[in-house]
Design a binder for these strands. Structure first.
Lengths: 184, 184
DNA sequence: AGTGGCATGTAAGGCGTTACATGATTTC
DNA sequence: GAAATCATGTAACGCCTTACATGCCACT
């Protein structure tokens, strides 16, 4: 359900193809919402069938044709309605590393530590990605479209979440590595 | 795939019914891995068909029959194999609140703030749940089974993650609420 | 000569949620 | 008298991933 709303939200910025939507998501929402290219195409068809978006094909020379989607008034209404309802429950999260760790008493100390150290590295990289590259992407958007200050503030808030989440994850991994090292 | 491994892991502690597995997950892994009762039953059948677990029915008076599952040697081998492979990628997370917030520039300030304040409350509660009740559950397990110290340490590490995650979430919400309040 | 970008899709299969169905016992 | 607990399952449906299929252009 939520991917449909994500696509509606993105199409409020400007008409786009499925391919462009995927690229946009990869540099903006990937932090908290992601989708495969194939799923995006299928979901766009579904939205069009419901009349929430509309498309037309643009021919190109030496390039595949583009199918450009734009949001309809019904789509905007649906999006606004969704945005206006407050969320009164918490999302459930899944994390494979935590699941593995939970059952890892069967493993020897070094196997566990190797696992944790690899993840520490990955999360550290992710953190600096949000702190530098993602920051730059948003700054470029703001410079290009100064009338979207309000959007930019909210986009930046979600980016900040990414930074804080990864910092917390690295702190927790450091703490956990220490505790496992202290095992006999 | 991972739910299958979660069930195998739980069944290494002791033979259990699908119903008991659900209860166990709700007080231990729910933080990072959850499943509906119906999905657990279906997945148990699947694991049995693969020979990774085996079951027998126990009749009861005035109660429904229980189907008790236990892990097989093949199941233990599969679990150990899974635990031994290090994870070299990061999980993708989804968070509906962040998705909504990202597109909320269309909404007025108060709608956004209401949303954020409700979530702050929910995350605050969740944090104290991990800090008190979940802690008590683990302490009781350790007292009952002192030979599972190593398991308990890892279980507690995943609980700590829950605490740190919720603390971070509340901090981020406070910061974001302030920024949104400052909007004209 | 090979890789990566541009561009769109289908099909199969697995994972997950919701709803439905049953029924006795215990607790409030 | 109502609700929760114990206990197991099926069916329909939707979401998501993986694999397959095509083909030109630009760059190295």
């Amino acid at each position: 359900m939520s991917l449909q709303h994500a696509l509606l939200g993105i199409l409020t910025y400007q008409p786009m193809t499925g391919y462009e939507i995927k690229q946009f998501m990869d540099v903006s929402t990937a932090n908290f919402w992601h989708a495969k290219q194939s799923q995006i195409y299928v979901t766009l068809k579904k939205l069009e069938k419901q009349g929430l978006i509309a498309s037309h094909v643009e021919a190109q020379e030496g390039r595949p044709d583009r199918r450009v989607y734009e949001i309809t008034p019904a789509g905007r209404a649906e999006l606004d309605n969704w945005l206006a309802q407050p969320l009164t429950v918490l999302d459930n999260h899944k994390d494979t590393l935590l699941l593995k760790l939970f059952f890892s008493a069967r493993m020897d100390k070094e196997t566990i530590l190797t696992q944790l150290r690899i993840q520490r590295d990955l999360h550290q990289r992710q953190q600096s990605l949000y702190a530098t590259e993602t920051k730059a992407v948003i700054d470029r958007f703001v410079a290009a479209m100064p009338d979207m200050q309000r959007d930019a503030l909210l986009w930046d808030a979600t980016r900040r979440f990414g930074v804080l989440f990864e910092e917390m994850y690295v702190r927790w991994l450091d703490e956990t590595i220490e505790r496992v090292e202290a095992l006999s």
